[in-house]
Amino acid sequence: MASTADTPVARRLQHVKHIIIVCSGKGGVGKSSISAQLALSLRSSSPTAKIGILDVDLTGPSIPRMLGLDGHPVHQSSDGWVPVYADGSEARLACMSVGFLLKKKEDSVVWRGPKKNAMIRQFLSDVRWGELDYLVIDTPPGTSDEHISLMEHMAPVASHLSAVIVTTPQAVALLDAMKCLSFTRAVSLPVLGLIENMSGYVCPCCGEISNIFSTGGGQEMARREGLKFLGSLPVDSDLVTLLDAAEISFELLRQYQQTSTAPLFAKIAEEIVRTLSDKET
């Protein structure tokens, strides 16, 4: 891959230090929640860190809702689309999603591949991200148009790319996580590691851990495939409610830090930051 290719995408993204693609194969395992949490945690990792989050789930965008940005419009400037900032004037958490472009939130986006490809190219080349330390990309399930398009358009910045694979403990999810891993191998995308989400449930009444979706399968897969295991996150119903709530103000970060998942996730984010900074040197 020519790392010097001068495409509009390359010109925009050369100012982004690290691009982290969150993927899973299986639907509903928590890609969007983990992308949102990763963006929030990376933002807190340093007082000056600048983060972007790009939602390329074109037919089922969740990021606007999860970050409390439902209904925000995207503005056009002479230098491209202005992302929506989840933290207002601090402007350290920039978001872009097709959800911001819809007139009504219940409008379905019925697009075939070429239209999706064009939209993704536009997201990568026309959004005024500015300088970013990390750009987190939330992807839809599967290994199809969106994923292939992402990899094609970002080929000129391939050295900035890496992936995080998310799974839940069930066999059906692990099966698709394997397919996702095969995809990353086929396109030579380095994998930072694997996260097992919804792993065990701590009962709010008696504190007993019950295995709603069983547990441990992700760790086992990581071991077998020689991947780094980034950690497991238990089922946390407060997190679901928080990400559903669509707070308008940037209360989210403070509230997120009060969930039982936040400290667990902070460790995962730290590990990601460490791995990426090792890569830099």
């Binding site: 075939r112 591949g113 070429p114 199809s144 099966l175 397919k179 996702c180 891993l181 095969s182 995809f183």
Partner: peptide
């Protein structure tokens, strides 16, 4: 193999 990813764009699907 069940590990194989089907990396197909729309027309093939």
């Amino acid at each position: 193999s069940s590990k194989d990813a089907v990396m197909w764009r729309g027309p093939k699907k």
